[in-house]
């Protein structure tokens, strides 16, 4: 392999942390969704790099599944964000706060 697998893991961990940082700091629900997508794609990078490293295809096939599921998740998420906007006239995730303990 031309590039050692360590570098791929570093790349994916960097992506994962960027996504996590986005989730913790962003208040816009759409940005939140994008950050989750970055985290899911970090896992995909890992899966494909490890599939190459181990020489079996399980990881690559699972990466395809992950992409499909991520798309399904975004579809449901956008639907929820749409009703959020209709009810609150905003897509800020901190606005709906009627329920607190």
């Amino acid at each position: 392999m031309s590039v050692p697998v360590d570098y791929y893991v570093l790349l994916s961990m960097a992506l994962f942390c960027i996504g996590l940082f986005g989730i913790l700091t962003r208040r816009n629900a759409l940005m939140f969704l994008m950050s989750v997508e970055i985290m899911l794609n970090a896992a995909n990078v890992n899966l494909i790099a490890f599939a190459f490293y181990h020489g079996n295809l399980t990881g690559q096939v699972f990466a395809l599944f992950t992409m499909a599921l991520a798309a399904a998740e975004v579809a449901v998420g956008l639907g929820i964000i749409l009703v959020l906007y209709r009810n609150f006239r905003d897509v800020d995730v901190t606005v709906p706060s009627a329920m607190r303990w």
Partner: peptide, 26 residues
Amino acid sequence: VEAGLKYFLIGALSSAIFVYGISLVY
């Protein structure tokens, strides 16, 4: 709607963490 949003946001985050965990175990 508020409940659905919170459930979805935490759910999406935790499924991203979960799938990353799967990739590391793999």
